[in-house]
């Protein structure tokens, strides 16, 4: 009976984020020479372990830990909502909602599955869909989550490092590629709507996004 329960694919020493660009063919010639020197040190997101602060909120209702999370993520969530088309007042209100949810769901945060920024992004995205009355977006079925499945320290560390690399790689993308990714995530636009908004051909947008994903994958190697 247990055979039907599939383990989380993120296993020890795996590189979970590399799954991102499966299906994208190698653009060896197109990307050769474009690779920049990767910056392996200097964490992109500062030295704070946001996941540890979330754990303190979950375990001890630690207001000081929450205040630090709020100071960092509140303004980021608000900016995300404003870029998605909300006015400043409703973005403020919804960012506050998101931070209330962060407190209430802190015990569901699992550092082996997502970084704090990623987890908060998913909460903000769901709130944005409600706020802008966008199409409903059901989540996938939860993975079976038994008591033995405590977050694995090594998985959590590997994920944290990959998230750092990804954040740096995104900053290092050529502006033409980065802006396409940002529009796709923040401006609530489909590829063809991006085409309308920018006047660029659809094929150009698709290939820029594909190239961007290919570079992000390179950064994780």
């Amino acid at each position: 009976m247990m055979d039907s329960i599939q383990p989380l694919i993120v296993s020890r020493h795996s590189k979970p984020l590399r799954h991102m660009v499966q299906g994208v063919r190698a653009f060896g010639a197109a990307t050769a020479g474009l690779d920049r020197v990767s910056r392996k040190t200097s964490p992109a997101t500062g030295d704070t372990d946001w996941g540890a602060l979330l754990r303190r909120v979950a375990d001890a209702q630690d207001s000081a830990a929450f205040a630090a999370l709020f100071a960092h993520f509140g303004p980021r969530v608000k900016a995300y909502l404003m870029k998605s088309g909300a006015d400043a007042a409703s973005a403020e209100e919804c960012a506050q909602d998101v931070m209330v949810t962060v407190w209430r769901k802190a015990d569901q945060f699992n550092p082996a599955r997502a970084s704090a920024a990623t987890w908060i992004f998913t909460i903000a995205r769901n709130r944005r869909i409600d706020m802008l009355r966008r199409d409903k977006r059901p989540d996938p079925e939860d993975l079976p989550w038994g008591p033995e499945a405590e977050p694995d320290q090594e998985d959590a560390l590997a994920l944290q490092q990959e998230t750092e690399q990804l954040t740096i790689a995104l900053r290092d993308l050529p502006e033409a590629q980065r802006s396409m990714i940002e529009r796709a995530y923040f401006n609530d636009l489909s590829h063809s709507e991006i085409a309308d908004a920018t006047g660029l051909p659809l094929g150009t947008i698709k290939s820029r996004i594909r190239l961007a994903l290919e570079r992000l994958r390179h950064s994780l190697n």
């Binding site: 979970p16 992109a44 980021r76 997502a114 990623t118 992004f121 903000a124 990804l166 995104l170 990714i181």
Partner: peptide
């Protein structure tokens, strides 16, 4: 499971983009 892991990667792109956004919160927000 494979697409679940890929989804996690795309969520991570959203998280990385979030890191680089900023708008002042109201003073009484917290």
């Amino acid at each position: 499971d494979e697409c679940r892991a890929r989804m996690a990667s795309f969520d991570a792109v959203g998280g990385a983009l979030l890191e680089d956004a900023h708008a002042e919160m109201a003073t009484d927000s917290l």
